[in-house]
Amino acid sequence: MTKLTLTNHPPVVIEAQSVTKRFGGLVAVSSVDLSIREKTIYAIIGPNGAGKTTFFNCISGFYTPEEGEVLFYGKSIKGKTTDRIAHLGISRTYQNIRLFSQMTAIENILVGSHCRYTNHWLDAILHTRRYRREEAESLAKAHDLLKFIGLEGLGDNLASNLPYGAQRRLEIARALASNPKLLLLDEPTAGMNPQETDEMIEFIRSLRDNLGITILLIEHDMRMVMGISEYISVLDYGMKIAEGTPTEIQSNQKVIEAYLGPGAAALQEKFSRGKDE
């Protein structure tokens, strides 16, 4: 479960090459490198304002980085619009849930699968064969996804009327509806209690195991990150200060300093030594 599996050469899904993003004078992300292989659960962590979400936005096309490259299966996606990127197979969720609240749950999923179909307004007016086939297909698929996230029977409720945890899962289902190869999850367990968090961990694992999707997530909850991810990068002040497996990260001095402030590492070392003795 360490370097060995990673060097087993599954193809690289996404690769960031010294990505830099500035806002005016502020460097939000500073030359970050990252590469994620297929079917990995990869986490980015870091203190508040470390540039995690900005980095996420660079990958999903919300921002265009000033420097560096973003490669998806070896092809540059830098500067592409978000809908093109979604079409290529990257979909995402949001830190504060952003569902289409005036639409039903199943409609949200149907919008998610929008980019996989081609029927247009004339088809809709004339109910052409293509329209009927695609509509039935997407509806069946949406229903299956609904079942998959455990919301069967609630599909005709407005998204805004669903409970919080269900909304989180629905957002993931919407992202899954476009058959993504890479799924970006922005704090998927934010605002959840420990039990809900455990359920979410199981759910994310099942995405990877059952659907074979590569997952990149941002998370604050250390327990969750350590429990789920196979590989972790740590950002601080826009720079990548460490990367490695959860166990490597846990003992990394820089990371502890970044989280608890300078001197904390020494303190902790002292503390743990004292405990050993």
Binding site: F23, Y63, G79, T81, T82, D83
Partner: peptide, 13 residues
Amino acid sequence: ETLKKLVPSDLNA
């Protein structure tokens, strides 16, 4: 400059 980048999608189009 930065704010222009904030709305890449439609402005570019």
